[in-house]
Design a binder for these strands. Sequence first.
DNA 1: AGCATAAATAATAA
DNA 2: TTATTATTTATGCT
Lengths: 184, 184
Amino acid sequence: MICVDYLSLPDTVGNSTESTTVDGINLDEIKEFARQFKIRRLSLGLTQTQVGQALSATEGPAYSQSAICRFEKLDITPKSAQKIKPVLERWMMEAEERYKNGVDNLTDFIGSEPSKKRKRRTSFTPQALDVLNQYFERNTHPSGAEMTDLSEKLNYDREVIRVWFCNKRQALKNTIKKLKHDTP
Amino acid sequence: MICVDYLSLPDTVGNSTESTTVDGINLDEIKEFARQFKIRRLSLGLTQTQVGQALSATEGPAYSQSAICRFEKLDITPKSAQKIKPVLERWMMEAEERYKNGVDNLTDFIGSEPSKKRKRRTSFTPQALDVLNQYFERNTHPSGAEMTDLSEKLNYDREVIRVWFCNKRQALKNTIKKLKHDTP
DNA sequence: AGCATAAATAATAA
DNA sequence: TTATTATTTATGCT
């Protein structure tokens, strides 16, 4: 792959009023767009992965997280950059538009994975333990919010819940280690 | 530590013209500043680590990457937030000022390590991977001495070995999670 | 151009 | 705070 190092071009072009172009492609413009794109993406709180998945979900060409990564760094040929730019531009425009109408609207557009935090009834009595174990099977690392949620639902101190998960993870680790050990 | 959950406070305060305050501290203001601070930091292309290091380098109180992280998430007491806010505000102001005068000026301010190019991705030989995997089967947490030993034996940088074990443990965990998921 | 995974960054535990 | 884990980004392959 022939790749012009246009990221390293000086920021200040003092030699003329002309833009830096290659094959009729305005590199300065693309460079600036890439920079702005990243800032806008982060402002929306989105990851490259999310953008990639969203682009794959909607019509138009699909791009992976790797593609987004390479575009932002302009680690691609000018021709490729020129091709992907309008796609990202259009997508970002819509994402920002939806963001104004509320985060839910954006989330919807992203096609997100909001279901990842689903919780069940929980706790320490035999019933509670049942619930905790089931939760652990789905997610060994609940977030702070998830644990607070659990503690309230089960009427146990939050710290108790946190410790339970710590111990459970430890136990899992030990079990695995032992299993691997016992079968040489 | 008593920590008011002011992150969850409603964005729209419709009940009065007063701001949400605790101990005379304007929480809404701090919350908004934290949000903006993150965006501004990212706009300058800075990491939490860099900001932390820069703050440690200059006069005034020193804050670690963790501190920056917690401030941005407001995972601190209102009192702490109130204390760190002006420090960050002042610092960010100067950083942006210098950024206008060129990235080098900012870099200089950051006290950076500009030569800190990303490390080249290490490529392990099949033989080395064999040894590492065998070792991992017996012990997922080799001691410092053991890792030094391995690095010398395999002729790889010790840090590379350490990271390999980190990633390997991660992979193991993910695999287990997925396996449990796929077999209900 | 995408997969697998190494490395960097952010978050959390200790 | 420092140490470690979790998450995100970047890169060697092909």
